[in-house]
């Protein structure tokens, strides 16, 4: 096991930030901690790194219990959201810092720092000052700096949070490739579900100091365990309704199957993901198109159905046939996955 955390608790003042988090990360695995801001995911990461101390619980790295060790002795690489580069050191000295601390001879340290900089694609920039670099370049320097002492685990705290969307997407793919080459056990904290799903082997959803779900990206997307997870990982419609005599839930003008254990008369809430709604042009349909927003190969359609507002994602070709104010029938894709969550 690369990383094991058992039953972590942490309180800041009166606030319980972490309320019993346990997780494990295999050697060489890349795991994301995903969740809304203030949910405690960064605190978990800082506890793993030794930058915060848990009130209770255990942290193991590579089979060694490290609770009593400070950050300097844990052998972790940490990348901060706002880079935290040493402003008064040149790029190469930033990267070589961890080696200097370990008394590696300066010539060797410099050689290794230069090699790492080349590896992260910043070969020519070693003599620059951090404030002469773009955000994306700075974050790559920070990553090279964290990797230089060959840490047993790499911890990334919202590493792309301060960058604009294009750079984010590029760096994300690059990070995954780098991880595959280097093979370091990696934990990535992010509030961006797309980022978490696209780079990691496994995603752990954290909310209010607790783990909501721990699974592979496809498990998270296809089998969300809670309403929160379902809402967090995609564009969804939330509808409420009552289970009718026919054994189907009618909500938001739609009928859907219900999970086992529900009975007639139960009030339920269903979370319908936008791409699971199927629209068909139909002058007698009950749905009315309000707005069509073209995206890449799909379009986002806002419509109203029996007074409820819904969002659907449909192929662009199909969307072109829609007219604002036109009528459509709304159905669930087959085979539709509908989760009803008691509300």
């Amino acid at each position: 096991m690369g990383i094991v955390a058992k039953n972590l608790h942490k309180q800041f003042g009166e606030t319980q930030v972490i309320r019993g988090v346990s997780l494990s990360v295999d050697r060489g695995e890349m795991v994301s901690l995903l969740g809304p801001s203030g949910g405690g995911k960064s605190t978990v990461l800082r506890i793993l790194a030794g930058l915060e101390r848990a009130d209770s619980g255990e942290v193991w790295l590579d089979g060694q219990r490290v609770d009593h060790l400070d950050a300097a002795s844990r052998g972790v690489g940490f990348v901060f959201q706002h880079y935290a580069l040493f402003r008064h050191m040149r790029v190469v000295d930033n990267v070589a810092f961890g080696l200097k601390v370990r008394k590696v001879n300066p010539v060797e340290a410099r050689r290794r720092a230069e090699a790492l900089l080349t590896r992260v694609g910043l070969g020519g920039l070693s003599e620059r000052w951090p404030d002469e670099l773009s955000g994306g370049q700075r974050q790559r320097v920070a990553l090279a700096r964290a990797l230089a002492p060959e840490p047993r685990v790499l911890l990334l705290d919202e590493p792309f949070g301060a960058l604009d969307a294009r750079v984010r997407a590029d760096l994300r793919e690059w990070l995954r490739r780098l991880h595959d080459e280097v093979g370091a056990t990696t934990v990535l904290v992010t509030h961006d579900q797309e980022e978490a799903l696209s780079v990691s082997d496994r995603v752990i959803l954290v909310k209010d100091g607790l783990i909501e779900q721990d699974g592979s990206p496809s498990e998270i997307v296809d089998a969300p365990r809670t309403e929160f997870v379902a809402r967090f990982v995609g564009e969804v419609n939330v509808v409420e309704g009552v289970v009718g005599a026919d054994g189907l839930l009618s909500a938001g003008g739609l009928s859907m199957r219900i999970p086992a254990g529900s009975k007639v008369g139960d009030r339920l809430r269903a979370v319908l993901r936008s791409h699971e709604l199927h629209l068909e042009l139909d002058p007698r349909g009950l749905g009315v198109v309000r707005r069509v927003v073209p995206l890449d190969d799909r379009a986002r359609v806002e419509l109203s159905l029996n007074g409820a507002s819904l969002v659907a994602r449909v192929p662009r070709a199909q969307a072109q046939a829609l007219t604002i104010g036109g009528s459509v029938t709304v159905a669930l894709h087959e085979p539709a996955r509908v989760w009803a969550i008691e509300g």
């Binding site: 300097a72 052998g75 940490f78 601390v101």
Partner: peptide, 8 residues
């Protein structure tokens, strides 16, 4: 903090 995680 960065320096600490780097072993300083």
């Amino acid at each position: 903090d960065a320096a600490r995680t780097l072993g300083a």
